[in-house]
Computed example of a mutant assay.
Amino acid sequence: MQPRHPAPLNALRAFETAARCLSFQAAATQLFVTPAAVSHQVKRLEAYLGVELFRRGHRAVELTPAGEALAASLSDVFAQLDLALNRATAPKAAHLRVSTVESFAAKWLAPRLHRFHRDCPDLKLRIETGNEPTDFFRDGVDVAIRYGPGGYSGVDAELLMDAPVFPVCAPALRSDVQQSLKVPDDLSHHTLLHDESAAGRPGVPDWRAWLDASGTKRVDASRGPVFASIYLAQEAAVAGHGVALGVAPLVEEDLQRGRLVRPFGPSLANAYAFWIVRRHDAQAYPAVEAFCQWLRKEAAEQDAHGANED
């Protein structure tokens, strides 16, 4: 079998863009060329491969089965190529993109970043928030920290911290002599603050689960406002607007600084935890490993502090 000539990279790029857009016009806009140039490159690739990649209609194009298969592979190939080029041309100080949930970014990561910058002054972080599955190649993310049950496929996932749950409130709320907050039954006189993180997630404690575990039957678990995130519910508790269920790693800073207190137990185990998620080859990048090592160190220190308090 005679070897082929080298693959036509410009034609491959034109095809991948056109396949993603399903439009030669849109692909041309992205590539800063004319639609005719895109069409020419696609025809060149079809001739090179000896297969039809698009079915061309009067006003639209549609991928053939061969085109769909090639487009799926090229999408990852070009994403990896772009990432490799970005790393090769990056400035001397490494830049890491970190994706995490809003609550973790605000309540755990941000208060500790001064220590990271002290330990790793040459590493610059860009923190992005979201809880959707991360496409590390396409999104350019180096490390993701997720709140979930684990079992992430196609990536390396490492448990960072467990996330037990317990009630928290502002100190003034606990010390209010007119509406005491000393035992779980006292919650019947206070606003319960809810967040959506427990909704429809088996094993993630909500107020009903906590009240059942505490043995109290006098409190309506459905009372009180519902917030879109743990962070918002916790901020409402800091402001003295009610009692929230705190996720341990996310309330540690506020407990230490006296913005929140634990009025009573118990603490419930949580099926969700915080995970470090990254590509399989991420350990080959020293900057990524340095950041992950720092995360492990901070999590271990938090665990030791919690054990001492207990």
Rank of each mutant, 00 (worst) to 15 (best):
Q2P: 14
R4L: 15
H5M: 10
H5E: 11
L9D: 10
A14F: 04
A14D: 09
A19H: 06
L22E: 11
F24G: 02
F24Q: 06
A26E: 06
L31D: 01
F32P: 00
V33L: 09
V33C: 13
A37Q: 03
V38D: 04
V42W: 03
R44P: 03
G50N: 07
R56F: 09
H58I: 06
R59P: 05
V61D: 03
P65K: 09
A71L: 11
S75L: 03
F78M: 09
L81K: 05
D82P: 02
L83W: 02
N86F: 07
N86A: 14
T89G: 10
A94P: 07
L96N: 05
L96V: 12
V98S: 01
E102H: 05
F104M: 13
A106T: 04
L109S: 03
A110P: 04
P111C: 09
R112E: 09
R112M: 09
H114D: 13
H114T: 12
C120P: 00
D122S: 14
L123R: 13
V141E: 00
D142F: 00
I145T: 05
R146W: 01
G151S: 12
E158V: 14
M161C: 10
D162R: 15
A163W: 02
P167H: 05
C169I: 07
C169K: 04
P171R: 13
A172W: 10
V177L: 15
P184Y: 03
D185C: 12
D195C: 15
D195L: 05
R208H: 15
R218Q: 15
R218N: 15
G224S: 11
G224K: 02
Y231C: 03
L232R: 15
A236Q: 06
A237S: 13
V238Y: 06
H241T: 07
G242V: 08
L245R: 00
A248Y: 10
P249E: 07
E252C: 08
E252I: 04
E253C: 07
V261P: 00
V261D: 00
P266L: 03
S267I: 05
L268Q: 10
A269P: 11
F274E: 02
W275L: 02
V277E: 02
H280Y: 06
P286T: 11
C292S: 06
Q293N: 15
W294K: 08
R296N: 12
A300K: 15
Q302L: 15
A307L: 13
A307T: 06
N308P: 00
D310N: 14
